[in-house]
Design a binder for these strands. Structure first.
Length: 625
RNA sequence: GGGCCUGUAGCUCAGCAUGGACAGAGUGCUGGACUUCUAAUCCAGUGGUCAAGGGAUCGAAGCCCUUCGGGCCCGCCA
């Protein structure tokens, strides 16, 4: 049993009692008590019925408590009416602890069937393949990855896509750099190719446009050649973007993120997808050819505020126009023009596919009944237009969902390290201007720090182990910091602050896991679960057990609200409950052998649950640290 | 001008969807706890007109309206 069942029992009994007393139906709430002195569970039914019964909430609660006390059911030992009007319940701890521990050692603990195995597509990452990933991209990647993991736990059949925008202006920019900027094709020794392209070639090239107007002309010629797809330039662009992509993916994999399929924008452009959608929109009258005004000669979509150009007067498609067939494709509205080939096998064993227009004779299906596109909320306007068009295509209501989030900015102090004086204000990142902090760099710096810390604490561990731990902790720290706050809060990234490993951080949570592992290791033998847990009666133990018992409730909440933060908070709360327990309750030196065993079971139950919860965040649980 | 987001402790944020019992964490600062299952920890203290004003409600940080800060978006760029 988990807390869910305790709540369900109380809800059903209260409802029954209300019926018997002739009270009218009310949508009352059964939830955890806000403070320990109010017991474990509270119900607000008294407040809701006060008006219709013309009685004080306390009177109503009293009458229900009275009835409830006649038969308290299985999981409740005390029922009381509080003078405030609440109905409060105390749980049957021996039974609760027992059931929670037993449930938590099941392989699929925390799983909850919301998705009913329906197909859902999550698209995230989608970074232009002309630069390395910076901390702003990391937020997108981690949100998308965490959501995918949570949805999977909630029994959705999840497909993860990464859209590679390999035919846009930014790609033309680096080609200009290589062709006319005098940049070597090979990066300096020791520098990753994606860093080289972004930090050196891209930034320097965009700078040169200001002084050399002929470069812009060269760029538009290159852009045209890219779209046509058969030229030497297109081939060269393809090589560059694929090389950058390969390096970007290394960073993603390092973060523990994997995908199912890479979709290349160039292929969408060269396939007939756009033409199909264009015709469809024309025949549906969603778009029109502008006859006059500033957009004369363009195909535009009439939006509520401003019209949006889809096809330029020279006949080429804009960025948003390319996104529409892709969105439709993701929902399976269009015939799939692609074949598929294997890109690689990722480290978790998941095969990564890529689309191709060559006939490989392999047809796969990466579409979904619903699509979640993770893009920062600065693109909400465009995403709204796409959502609107997709709903005009009669996809099921709400099937295309833009999951937006606020951006990551750099703190004034961190900007200063990039030689940027912002006058004490934080600053928006910009790949073009070179204002960003690369993800690999952050992980490397974090890794050095976590390595030193781990070595200090574990002099007996060998080099390989220490490196492994430091990497796990560095990634835990970064991932957690990207997910712990709400999506609509701006994250101000500060390098110094990001090195903090104490308090509400990933490492704090990982540390609690390592502590639990150490107890189990020193305990020596596998604890025996077929015993009574009634001796686990300190508040430290019951609070920990209750926290463990909330896992599936949190998964449900996170999945329904697409809110990764909920799982982050749960992991933190779980770790706090364990650390408090750890400081106050001795396990291995408990009074009796039976008590040692019972506590070992609780510790085991905790570590299993934390491991599962952390895995939803893509954070490894280290055995030592 | 229009749209979206945001304002809670010195700082960073939970809580707001579904109104209810004295508004919670982390961090900072002040003190305390390692011969003990790892102190990346724990304990105590400090710290709040929940931006302001109004409204509906028995009851508002939360709902409605207004105002004021802050951020972002409104291109034949992506």
């Amino acid at each position: 049993m988990t807390l869910r069942l305790l709540f369900a029992e109380i809800r059903s009994n209260v409802k029954k009692i209300c019926d018997n007393l002739g009270y009218q139906q009310a949508e009352f709430d059964v939830s955890e008590a806000s403070r320990p002195e109010f017991g474990d569970v509270s119900c607000n039914v008294g407040f809701l019925l006060a008006k219709s019964l013309k009685k004080r909430p306390f009177e109503i609660a009293k009458s229900i408590a009275n009835e409830y006390n006649k038969d308290k059911g299985k999981f409740v030992t005390e029922v009381s009416a509080h003078s405030s009007g609440y109905l409060n319940f105390v749980a049957n701890y021996p039974l609760l602890t027992q059931s929670v521990i037993q449930s938590s050692i099941q392989e699929n603990y925390g799983q909850i069937d919301i998705g009913k195995n329906s197909k859902i597509v999550v698209e995230h990452t989608s970074v232009n393949p002309n630069k390395a990933l910076h901390v702003g991209h990391v937020r997108n990647i981690i949100i998308g990855d965490t959501i995918s993991r949570i949805l999977q736990k909630a029994c959705y059949d999840v497909r993860v896509l990464n859209y590679v925008d390999d035919s846009g202006l930014q790609v033309a920019d680096i080609i200009v750099g290589f062709r006319y900027g005098g940049f070597s094709r090979e990066p300096p020794k020791g520098q990753k190719f994606d860093h080289y392209c972004g930090d050196v070639v891209y930034v320097n090239t965009t700078e040169r446009y200001e002084n050399d107007p002929t470069l812009a002309t060269k760029r538009s010629l290159i852009l045209k050649e890219l779209e046509e797809g058969k030229s030497e330039t297109a081939k060269f662009g393809d090589e560059i973007t694929r090389h950058v992509l390969e390096e970007q993916l290394k960073t993603c994999w390092r973060l523990g993120v994997t995908y199912d399929c890479l979709n290349f924008e160039s292929q969408i452009v060269r396939s007939n997808l756009w033409k199909n959608v264009f015709d469809k929109m024309k025949s549906m009258g969603i778009i029109e050819l502008e006859k006059e005004g500033k957009n004369v000669g363009c195909w535009v979509i009439k939006a509520e505020s401003d019209d949006k150009v889809l096809v330029r007067s020279d006949g080429t498609a804009t960025y948003i126009a390319k996104d529409i067939p892709y969105a439709a494709w993701k929902l399976g509205i269009l015939d799939d023009p692609f074949y598929y080939k294997q890109y690689s096998t990722q480290r978790d064993g998941r095969v990564l596919w890529e689309t191709t227009l060559e006939n490989t004779e392999t047809k796969l299906n990466f579409t979904g009944d619903a699509v979640i596109t993770v893009i920062d909320s600065r693109q909400s306007r465009l995403q709204n237009i796409i959502t609107k068009i997709i709903s005009d295509f009669k996809a099921k209501e709400g099937s295309y969902f833009h999951l937006g989030y606020e951006s990551v900015t750099l703190s004034a102090e961190t900007a200063k390290t990039l030689n940027l004086d912002t006058g004490g204000k934080s600053v928006q990142m910009s790949g073009r201007k070179g204002i960003y902090v690369n993800a690999d760099y952050v992980l490397d710096i974090l890794g050095v720090k976590t390595y030193e810390e781990a070595k200090k604490r574990n002099p007996d561990l060998n080099e390989v182990k220490l490196v492994q731990i430091s990497e796990q902790v560095a990634i835990g720290a970064l991932r957690y910091s990207m997910i712990k706050q709400d999506l609509d809060k701006i994250i101000t990234f500060d390098m110094t602050e990001s090195l903090s490993l104490e308090g509400d951080t990933g490492p704090y949570i990982q540390y609690s896991y390592a502590r639990a592992m150490r107890i189990l290791e020193k305990g020596g033998k596998t604890p025996s679960f077929g015993v009574s847990f009634s001796d686990l009666n300190t508040s430290y133990e019951t609070i920990l057990a209750k926290m463990i018992g909330k896992f599936d409730i949190q998964v449900e909440d996170a999945a329904k609200n697409l809110s990764p933060k909920i799982i982050a908070r749960y992991c933190y709360d779980l770790a706090v409950a364990f650390n408090t327990f750890y400081e106050h309750v001795k396990v291995l030196t408990a009074e009796s052998e039976a008590l040692v065993n019972a506590r070992l079971c609780l510790v085991y139950s905790f570590k299993e649950t934390l491991d599962k919860a952390l895995s939803l965040l893509g954070i490894d649980a280290p055995e030592r640290m």
